[in-house]
Write a protein that binds this DNA or RNA. Structure first.
Lengths: 244, 244
DNA sequence: CGGTACCTTGACGAGCATCAAACCCTGTGG
DNA sequence: CCACAGGGTTTGATGCTCGTCAAGGTACCG
C-alpha cells in the first residue's frame, strides 16, 4: 500500500502541500487501496455507500440515469478527485460513478469522516471547499448546455478536459493529451445526440480547432478553441486544491 | 433586529431544530439584517463578497452571465437559503444573486465563518451538507436541461418550485402557490427561448397539468405533472436542512 | 469467422429559436 | 383625463439546429 507520504499525486503543483501531522492524520484515515477494471461501477446512484475514494490514477465519469434509460454525465473523473462525499454527507448517492479506464483508488471509510472533520477544522473546511468547487463546475456545465450551440459546447468540454488532464501531468511532450472517453460519453455530458456529436467533432477537426481521434486530443491553438467555447482564454490559473 | 430564537423560519418543519447553545453561537455570528427591493443584485459574479446571507423572506434567482449577455439561471432562491457561501469558501462568486421580490436578509460576516467552523464541527458539517445539496440540485437541473424536451423541463421546474414554496409555508389554502418570477426567468433556467417557454406553458395549461398565471401557480394533479416531468411522484420527503 | 463495440456518414423531419407584432397592465407626465 | 412609454405576456410565420433512422466501416476478440 502506498503511504500518503509517497502519494504520486503530490508531485503536481495542483494540490495543497501537507504538513507532517496532516500526513499522519490522513494516513490513519486511509483504509486501503482498490484497483478496478474499465467499466466498473464504483458507486451506484441511490446506494448508501460506506466508502469514499480518492482517485490515484485512471479516469471515469459521474452520471445520472433517467427513468427511460438515458443518462446525463455530470462530469468527468480525473486523478486526485474525491468521489463519494455526497453519500457520506447526504446519506445516499445521487449519481453513479464509473471507471472508464483502469483505475486505482485510495479507500476511506465513511464512518471515520465525521471524526476526521471534528479532529481537524482545516480538513472540514477543505471538504466544504471541494463541494463548493464541484457545484461551480456543474453550474458551468449547466450554463454551457443551456445556452451554447453544439460546436461551442464541444469546444468548451474539450478545453476543460484538456486543462484537467494537463494539471495532473497527463500531457505528452508533443502536445497530445490522452482522452480515453467515448463520443457517447461526451454526447451524454453535453445533452447532444451521438450522431450530432460525431458530426460536430468533425467540423472542429476540419476547422483545426480540436483534433480528437484514437483517444488522443490535440489542440493546435487554445486561444482559438477558447474563442469558440465562449471562454476568455483561461490564464491556466487552476485552483490549487486540497488533497484528501 | 430579529433574534435567532424568534426566527420566523423556525416554524416550518423543514429545518433542523437548534439547541440553546447553538442558538447562542448563531446569534453571535449574526451581523445584522438587510432589506432589498425587487431587482437588487445581492451578490455579483466575480466579486469577493465580504458577507453572506440567509434569506428570511422573499425570492430571487442565482444566475451566470455569459460573455454575449445571455444568462443561465442556476436556481431559484427561497426563504431559508444560504447565499454567498461560494465566495467565502472559494474566494469569489461564480454567479450572481438577484432579488425578484422584496427580500429580507440575515447578514453574516465572511471573516467569522472560519472561526465559526472551527468552534463547532457540527456547523462545519452543516456547511458541507448545504454545499453538497446545492450540487445535487444543480446536477438534477443539468440532467433535465440536457435530456428532456421542453414540456418535461417546464413540468419539472414547476413541480420543484411548487415543492420548495410549500416547504416554507407559501402555499395558499385553495392550492395556489405564489410564484413571482417572470417567464424569462424560467426560460433562462431551462435553456429555452422566451417564446417557446410561453407556448409550452400554454399547452401545459390546456392539458390541465399546471396553471401559472399572474404570479400564481396551481397544480391540479401533482401525480400527472410528475409523470410529465419524468419524476417518480415525489413522496414529499423533503430533506430536513440545517439553518444557518 | 461471426459477434460486438465504437466511429462515420447520409437523408429526413421535428423541435425549438428567431423575428415581428399585437396586447395587456401600470405608472407618468402634460 | 388622456397620451405615452415600458415591462411583461401572447401569438403567428419561417427556417435553422439538432434528433432520429438507417446503413456501412473498422478494429478487436473469442
Amino acid at each position: 500500500m502506498i503511504r500518503c507520504a509517497d502519494c504520486p499525486l503530490r508531485e503536481f503543483g495542483l494540490f495543497d502541500p501537507f504538513s507532517a501531522e496532516e500526513e499522519d492524520a490522513m494516513q490513519r484515515f486511509k483504509r486501503g487501496e482498490m484497483a478496478v477494471d474499465p467499466g466498473t461501477t464504483v458507486l451506484r446512484e441511490g446506494s448508501k455507500a460506506a466508502q469514499l475514494y480518492t482517485v490515484l490514477s485512471g479516469m471515469g465519469v459521474r452520471y445520472k440515469t433517467l427513468p427511460d434509460g438515458r443518462r446525463q454525465v455530470i462530469n468527468f473523473i480525473f486523478p486526485g478527485d474525491f468521489v463519494g462525499l455526497q453519500a457520506s454527507v447526504m446519506g445516499e448517492m445521487q449519481h453513479s460513478a464509473e471507471a472508464t479506464t483502469d483505475m486505482r483508488l485510495c479507500v476511506f471509510d465513511r464512518t471515520t469522516l465525521w471524526r476526521f472533520m471534528k479532529s481537524s477544522p482545516e480538513r472540514a473546511f477543505d471538504l466544504t471547499w471541494l463541494s463548493a468547487v464541484e457545484e461551480h463546475l456543474v453550474s458551468e456545465a449547466l450554463a454551457t448546455v443551456g445556452q451554447m450551440r453544439a460546436e461551442s459546447r464541444i469546444a468548451w468540454a474539450l478545453l476543460r478536459l484538456h486543462q484537467r488532464a494537463n494539471a495532473v501531468g497527463l500531457a505528452d511532450p508533443c502536445g497530445a493529451t490522452p482522452l480515453p472517453f467515448r463520443q457517447q460519453d461526451l454526447a451524454d455530458a453535453l445533452g447532444l445526440s451521438l450522431v450530432h456529436t460525431n458530426k460536430t467533432l468533425k467540423t472542429l477537426r476540419v476547422r483545426k480547432l480540436a483534433l480528437w481521434t484514437d483517444g488522443l486530443l490535440k489542440i493546435p491553438s487554445r486561444k482559438a478553441l477558447a474563442d469558440e467555447a465562449g471562454l476568455y482564454d483561461t490564464p491556466e490559473k487552476l485552483h490549487r486544491r486540497p488533497l484528501i
